[in-house]
Amino acid sequence: MLTESQAWQVLGDVPDPEIPVVSVVELGIVREVASRAGGLRVVVTPTYSGCPATEVIADSIRAALAAAGAGAVDIETRLDPAWTTDWMGDAARDKLRAYGIAPPSGTAAAGGVQPIRFVAKSQTCPHCGSTDTERLSEFGSTACKALYRCRACREPFEYFKPI
């Protein structure tokens, strides 16, 4: 049987299926690990309630913990509170940038109130560092990202939206 601390270490090596340079722990998807009779209970909060990778994430978590000797693993999906990019650490943001995805800037809305912005803020290009960028699409390869292009180096990139 694994301890909760050992389980967290194992989960720290489980990559996010859509962004494999960060783990499910680094993204803040894993909310809780608790010992129970015969195994573990893991609470996860997907980045979006309709995230298409939710089942893959649960299967990956279950397989990694089982391979490490955790016994039975129950996965609980918890949607409240909703996941926020505030749950990501600086290391995860650095890994996203190095991978070519602009990490989220700012923080999520406090108390569900999002300020009104009349001018879209440009994002910093993860390739060259320029802020002379333009949004091409509100959605990238997944709903949690937007598609941008850098006007300086002309490279497209995705921006992980703060939510």
Rank of each mutant, 00 (worst) to 15 (best):
D90H: 13
E138S: 13
L96C: 05
T133K: 10
V22P: 07
R41S: 10
D94C: 05
A58H: 00
A102M: 06
A70F: 01
F157R: 13
C150E: 04
A64D: 01
L27A: 08
T124A: 12
V73S: 02
A109V: 08
T133Q: 07
A91H: 10
E32S: 14
K121P: 07
Y99C: 11
I57P: 02
T54W: 06
G100M: 09
S130F: 09
Q9S: 10
V43R: 15
R151Y: 00
Y148R: 07
A82L: 14
Y99S: 09
C51E: 03
A64M: 02
R93F: 11
V73C: 03
I29T: 08
A152Y: 00
G38I: 07
A98D: 13
A63I: 00
G111P: 12
F118V: 09
W8M: 04
C125N: 07
R62N: 02
V73G: 01
Q9E: 15
A146P: 11
P46L: 11
T107F: 14
V113M: 14
K121I: 01
H127E: 09
L65P: 02
G112C: 11
L79D: 02
A7V: 10
I101E: 04
A82H: 09
V25D: 04
Y148S: 11
S60N: 12
G38H: 07
D132Q: 12
V119K: 14
T45L: 11
A34G: 08
C128L: 04
I57E: 00
I163W: 15
A98V: 03
G12M: 12
Y99T: 08
D80M: 14
